[in-house]
């Protein structure tokens, strides 16, 4: 836990947030009465089946969707004001690197758009590529890198302009499990070093439990929060922590939340052992 870093005002705060899409088949309630506070330096995962509104919530934070009710503030501002203030970097499921730009050129893209000086751009590109362990790959083109490396480059791109918040929408969802484990480890290290606030959408229970200080379990139709779990795991998390009882207990609680669609209840020990194989 990073309680020492938490300041009084939450970085992201949603109160009675509602978001209804008007579609051809009638209104779809993507988010219903969502209440959530995310403090500085937290690593918050959103987990739930598809259609539960986890990505929609992340997009609302990024001002890519507009809520139809309630309030949402980012750094105390409206989301679009926060965006103009460069409050966040966004990482998508696909790396989405421009094939016509080198890795360094891709990381440079937001800096060019935001008008950083050339010298500053160079320095920042070098720094963030080192941060994601891609130093020396700046002159390569995206197709010369593996999928995992491409996704690391897209994280570097989101870090380049020093936003305090990192919004990640299933960033490792398209990668195989071995690469995903490694990137999860690196992401935790990165979070420890940079003290960012991270909101992370995933559909993997072990990933959510391994990474997060706070896990938000969501449920679909209408998209809503069914459980918020504060993780008791220590900040320093080797991959082996996934075999610990604490980890398994949290994973179980997440699973219960997902299955029931309402707040987690008491569980039996034998059940935990049966589900262990599934979650690790």
């Amino acid at each position: 836990m990073k309680d020492t870093l938490s300041s009084a005002a939450p970085v992201i705060e949603a109160r009675d947030l509602n978001l209804v899409f008007q579609t051809g088949d009638g209104p779809v309630h993507a988010l219903k009465d969502v209440n959530l506070s995310i403090n500085r330096g937290e690593f918050v995962s959103f987990i739930g089946p598809s259609g539960c509104g986890k990505t929609t919530f992340l997009r609302a934070i990024a001002a890519l969707e507009t809520p139809t009710g309630g309030t949402l503030t980012v750094n105390g501002m409206a989301p679009d004001a926060a965006r103009r203030a460069r409050a966040y970097g966004y990482v998508f499921q696909a790396a989405g690197l421009y094939p016509w730009r080198t890795i360094a050129g891709n990381v440079r893209l937001p800096l060019e758009i935001m008008g950083f000086s050339r010298a500053d751009q160079d320095a920042r590109v070098d720094r963030v590529l080192e941060l994601v362990e891609l130093g020396g790959f700046g002159r390569k083109f995206p197709w010369q890198l593996s999928g995992g490396m491409q996704q690391r480059a897209s994280i570097a791109r989101a870090l380049a302009f020093d936003a305090d918040i990192l919004l990640m929408d299933e960033p490792f969802g398209a990668l195989d499990e071995i690469v995903r484990d490694r990137l999860n480890e690196e992401l935790l290290k990165l979070w420890n070093r940079t003290q960012k606030t991270i909101a992370f959408v995933t559909h993997s229970i072990p990933e959510a439990v391994y990474l997060s200080t706070k896990i938000v379990v969501m449920s679909p139709r209408p998209g809503r929060i069914t459980d918020i779990i504060d993780s008791p795991l220590p900040t320093d998390r080797p991959l082996e922590i996934r075999d610990s009882q604490a980890f398994i207990d949290i994973a179980h609680r997440v699973r219960q939340g997902l299955r029931a669609g309402h707040v987690w209840k008491v569980f039996g020990k034998s059940l935990v052992l049966i589900q262990r194989a599934g979650c690790i």
Binding site: L64, Y88, E112, M114
Partner: peptide, 27 residues
């Protein structure tokens, strides 16, 4: 849509959208 969203998150202008993304992508 994802590439357009990415530029939105940078607050890119219409002109930047054209010169940095649409034009090179059309080559």
């Amino acid at each position: 849509a994802m590439q357009l969203d990415l530029l939105s998150t940078y607050n890119a202008s219409g002109a930047q959208n054209f010169w940095k993304l649409r034009l090179p992508a059309s080559m």
